[in-house]
């Protein structure tokens, strides 16, 4: 379980791993907000490759990041979404407003 940030040429890549649930979400959101504040990127990429479980707390996390990025004129991309997390995102129809790419 962890969150790794990397910034390059206006792109902030945030790799989230482990279980994303309510217990975990607040800390992760604070880390994301702090990194966005510090780097003010054009693009924020949430890389979910190593997420082993996600529930609707993950949806709230993505939506909040999306709103924050909108405020600074940037956008959020969600990438490498594993099967279980993808089913949760599909059930919520969040892909209508945010770019979501499955793990290939």
């Amino acid at each position: 379980m962890g969150t790794v940030m990397r910034e390059k040429n206006g792109k902030l890549r945030i790799s989230v791993s482990g279980e994303v649930d309510h217990h975990r979400a607040r800390d992760t959101m604070e880390q994301i907000e702090e990194a966005v504040e510090r780097t003010l990127p054009r693009e924020c990429i949430l890389d979910l490759r190593d997420v082993t479980f996600m529930d609707s707390s993950g949806i709230a996390l993505i939506l909040k990041t999306h709103r924050r990025m909108n405020e600074i004129g940037g956008r959020v991309l969600v990438e490498n979404v594993p099967g279980q997390a993808m089913r949760v995102l599909e059930a919520s129809a969040i892909d209508r407003i945010i770019s979501i790419k499955a793990n290939t």
Binding site: S56, S57, R67, A91, S92
Partner: peptide
């Protein structure tokens, strides 16, 4: 804003 309001929707679809 910490919640998505999708909890019951997920219970229902799953």
């Amino acid at each position: 804003s910490d919640r998505s309001g999708m909890g019951f929707t997920i219970m229902e679809s799953f």
